[in-house]
Amino acid sequence: MTTTTSPLLSVEGLRVAFPGRHGAPTARAVDGVDLDIRRGEIVALVGESGCGKTTLARSLLGLVPPTAGRVTFDGAPLAYSSRALKAYRKRAQLVLQDPSGSLNPRHTVYDAVAEGLRIHGHPGDERAAVAGALARAGLRPPERFFLRYPHELSGGQRQRVVIAGALVLEPELLVADEPVASLDASVRGEILALLLRLRTELGLSALVVTHDLGLAWNIADRVAVMYLGRIVETGAVEQVLTAPRHPYTQALLSVLPEAPGAPVVLTGEPPDPSRIPAGCRFHARCQILAGGEAERAGVADACRGQDLEILHGGGTNQVACHWARTRPQEETAAKAGTGAAVPPG
C-alpha cells in the first residue's frame, strides 16, 4: 500500500505515569515514545502484557491524558477539552478486543451501531448509515442483523458489529486493541482480511495493538516492538520480523512454531513500570548479556548503566540496543540464531 509521507498521527516524547498508592513508586507505563502513523498505513504495536502498549493506544485517543509529550493529528496538536475530544473521536475510533464486553447485551445491533451517530448528532439518514457500516463490515444483508442482540451472534459477527460501530462515523484512523485475540482461529483470518480491505477501500490508517507477531506479519506495513514503556525496535514488518536485531524481538519470535532453533527463555522478572532499571531496560532479562555476547562485544557495562535514546517516530528501521549497534544487521540476527526466520503466520 502506498502511503503519503506526512503522518496522519504523530506522537512526540509521550509519557504516561500513574502515581502509586500508599507511597508506592510511580508507574511509568509509557516512558518516552515517538511514533508516526501515515495515511493508509497499518502499524502493529507489539509486546508482552504489561509493556504499556494498551496505555499508549488509549492515550493516542485522549482516553488517558499524557503526563508529558504531545499527540498531533492531521497537523494539529490534540486538545483535551470535552468539545475537542468529541470532534477528534469522530475521526479516530477504538476497536476493543472483547466484542462481548464492548456491546451492551440489551441493545440491538442497530442501536449499537447507531450509538455513535446519535452521540455526534449525525444529520443524515441514520438507517442508511447503519446499513452501510454493517455492509462494509461484512454483515450482509445488513437489515437481517438490525434487530438481533449480541447473544444471537457468533464471536466473529460480534466483532464485525464493533467494527461497524467504528466505521459508521467514517473515521480516518482505527486503533484496534488485540482485535482478534478472543476469536477462534477460523475467524481470525476473516477479521484481518476485513481490516486490510477497509484500508484499501476507505484509505483508513490503523494502529493494531497485539502480542501476536504472526498477526503483525499478516496485516502490518510497519511494526513497533515495545518493552517497559518504550519502543525498542521499529521498521518495515518484513525487515524486523525476518531479521530482528533487538534481543527482545528475537525472543518473541523464537517461540513461534515457524522459528528456527530453540525458543529463547527469558530470565528475570516480568517488566515492572514502577522499577525501570538503569541502562538498557531489558538488560536484566537479556539473553545476549547473560550469554556473554555483550561482554565480548565490549558493551556489557553500557547495557547495565547507559540509557538509550528514544527512537524517532519515522518509518526507518531502528533499534535501541547497545549490542545490536556494534555489528551489521545480518550478523546481529545470525548471532542470536534467529536470522532468516521463516515469516510468522
Results as ranks from 00 to 15, higher is better:
327 R>Y: 08
118 R>S: 06
96 L>D: 01
298 G>L: 10
77 P>L: 01
211 H>E: 06
13 G>V: 00
138 G>H: 10
146 F>Q: 00
206 A>R: 13
345 G>A: 15
43 V>K: 06
310 I>E: 05
109 V>D: 12
15 R>F: 01
53 K>P: 07
170 E>V: 01
270 P>Y: 05
252 L>E: 11
124 G>K: 03
287 Q>W: 07
256 L>I: 10
258 E>P: 06
48 E>M: 06
94 L>F: 15
116 G>N: 01
135 A>M: 04
288 I>M: 09
50 G>P: 11
50 G>T: 12
209 V>E: 07
122 H>W: 02
311 L>M: 08
20 G>C: 09
167 L>C: 07
200 T>H: 08
220 A>I: 13
303 C>T: 04
252 L>R: 05
295 E>R: 12
276 I>V: 13
89 R>K: 06
289 L>N: 04
152 E>Y: 00
31 D>R: 07
205 S>M: 06
162 V>Y: 14
157 Q>P: 08
6 S>A: 04
332 T>G: 02
184 D>M: 10
303 C>W: 00
234 T>P: 11
244 P>N: 11
101 G>M: 14
89 R>A: 10
100 S>A: 15
244 P>Y: 11
340 A>G: 14
144 R>P: 02
188 R>C: 14
264 V>M: 09
284 A>G: 12
319 V>R: 00
276 I>T: 11
229 G>F: 06
93 Q>S: 14
236 A>P: 05
95 V>H: 13
121 G>K: 04
193 A>E: 09
39 R>P: 03
295 E>A: 13
287 Q>T: 02
248 Y>F: 15
252 L>C: 15
55 T>G: 13
15 R>A: 07
24 A>K: 08
5 T>D: 06
265 V>A: 08
180 V>Y: 07
107 H>D: 13
206 A>M: 14
114 A>C: 02
226 M>G: 13
299 V>Y: 11
135 A>Y: 04
65 P>W: 13
316 T>M: 03
242 T>L: 09
202 L>C: 05
331 E>A: 14
336 A>P: 06
73 F>K: 09
127 R>A: 06
332 T>F: 04
143 E>T: 08
292 G>K: 05
63 L>T: 12
299 V>I: 08
270 P>Q: 06
344 P>T: 14
285 R>F: 07
324 A>C: 07
25 P>F: 11
201 E>L: 02
307 D>P: 05
127 R>N: 04
124 G>E: 12
263 P>W: 09
131 A>S: 15
345 G>P: 02
